[in-house]
Amino acid sequence: MAQIKEVTKILVDNLKLRGSVLPISQEAATKWAKDLNLPKGGDTILYTGNMYQIIPYINKLVKTLELFEGTFFMNFTVFGRMANRFVNVSKFMGGPNKEEVKTFNNTLTNMAKLLQKSGSKFGYLYEDDLYAGALTYDLGADDVTLAQAKKVYENLKKHGVKRVITVDPHTTHMLREVYPKILPEFDIVVKSYIEVLAKRGLNPLNNKGGEVAIHDSCVYARHENVVGEPRELLSKAGVNVKEPFESKKITFCCGGPAESLFPSKALEVGKKRMAQLCKECDHVTVMCPICNANLKRSATNGTKITDFADYISEFYLEN
C-alpha cells in the first residue's frame, strides 16, 4: 500500500513546485487554441484548467502504475517520490500517445467553436490557464489545494475575469463549489460550456440524427446538476439518446477517479459501466476526459467512445 502516500506526494510536489499534478509544456497546453485568435483574458474566458491536456500524460502514468501495481517494484515509487523533488520524474515515463493528444486538443477546439457559434464572446488565459487542483483535493491534500485556489483566483482577478466557462466537470466543481467553500472571497461566475450552449439556445445546422448512449459524469450529474442540458442539445439535433440502466442522477461511475492509485480497480468499475452502455448502443458519448480515458481503457468490443463536444459538432458545426 506504499503507493498511496508516495503517489499522493508526487502529485502534491508537482502541483507545489511545477503548478500541475502532471506538468506539461506551455506549448502542449495551449496548442489547441493556436488558430483561434482568442484574446488573452477579458470579462469572460474559456477555462480549461489543463484537464483535457494532461489526460494523455495521466494515461501514460496509469500504464506505468499498472505494470507495478501490487508488486515489489511498487516500492520504487518511494525513490521516485524523493527524486521528484529535484527533477520531474513524470518526464521519464516517456511521451504520451500522439493520437490521444491530437484528439483531446481537437475536442477543446470544437468546444471553443461551438461557443463562438452560439454568440458567446470569450478570451483565454493561455499560459495563465492554471490547473484547478481537482486531484489533490480529492486525495485530501488540502493545504496545497488551498494554495493553488489562491493562485488561480489571483490570476483570474489579474486578468479582469468575471465569468468563467469551463470544459470539464471536475474543474467546474472545483471552481463552482469547492473554491467558494475554501476561499470565501471567490466571486467568479462559473458555467460549463454545455450549460452555456443550452442556455444560448444554439441551433443545429442539420438534424441528420443518429443514436448514441449517454454516459453522465458523476460530477456533472450529482454534484453540479448538469443533466438536462446535454440531452436537450442532442435531441435538438434529432439524436435518439439511449439511457443506460443507471443514468442521470443515478449514473454509475466510470471508475476513473481510482486510476491514479488503483488502476486495476478503476478498470473493473469501467468494465461494469461499459457493459451497461454497450447494451444500449455501440456508440457512447461522454462529457469528461477522465470518463473518456477510463471507459476507453475498459472497452473490449470495439464500442466507439466520443467526447460530447466532438459528437455534437457533427450537427452544430460546418465540417
Binding site: M1, I4, C218, R222, I250, C253, P257, K265
Partner: peptide, 16 residues
C-alpha cells in the same frame, strides 16, 4: 483501512 478510504470514487451514488 487506508486502501478502502482511498478506493472511494467520491461518486456520491450511495448518497442518492
Amino acid at each position: 483501512e487506508q486502501e478502502s478510504i482511498y478506493s472511494c470514487l467520491l461518486c456520491k451514488l450511495c448518497e442518492e
